[in-house]
């Protein structure tokens, strides 16, 4: 089961709408509640990062019987030092974004804590690719 979404950089009014849609889909499929909760946190942070930092991006969600795989690709400034970006409190968000309560430097650690597998790669001046995988270990879903 595939879903693809387009994300517009800077459009905070829409931030979180993909996460909300994915949450609805997972609920309909009867995925375990704790897996939904974790997936939504990781995806929301990744989605907001595209809105806050990139020009545009795509989110491709694939739901399989045993896992959900989310691929986020953006065109944007990229991350020069991913290790540094993972540190709690490190942020390059603008003052405007911070005033809204975003950009506290907690997003990537939230993504890490709420993903079974997280892969981030980035090219400065081009963009960032984030892959989140969460497993439905205890309870496979039926995709009929």
């Amino acid at each position: 089961m595939f879903f693809e979404y387009s994300i517009e950089g800077g459009n905070f009014a829409q931030a979180g709408s993909t996460s909300s849609q994915v949450k609805k889909n997972l609920k309909q499929l009867n995925v375990d509640g704790s897996v939904i909760k974790r997936t939504v946190v990781a995806l929301y942070e990744a989605e907001v990062n595209i809105v806050a930092h990139a020009f545009r991006g795509t989110i491709i969600v694939e739901i399989m019987e045993d896992k959900i795989h989310i691929l986020l690709n953006d065109e944007g400034p990229g991350i020069p030092d991913i290790g540094k970006a993972m540190e709690i409190g490190f942020s390059t968000a603008s003052p405007e974004v911070r005033e809204m309560g975003f950009g506290a430097g907690m997003g990537l650690s939230n993504m890490k804590n709420n993903s079974d597998e997280l892969h981030i790669s980035s090219k400065v001046g081009q963009g960032t690719r984030v892959e989140i995988t969460n497993y439905f270990q205890a309870k496979p879903v039926s995709l009929q």
């Binding site: 905070f12 009014a13 931030a15 979180g16 709408s17 996460s19 909300s20 949450k23 909760k37 939504v40 946190v41 929301y44 809204m100 309560g101 975003f102």
Partner: peptide, 11 residues
């Protein structure tokens, strides 16, 4: 702002 409701709903 609007994102507060998005976060409250997701959580």
């Amino acid at each position: 702002h609007k994102n507060v409701i998005a976060v409250a709903s997701l959580k």
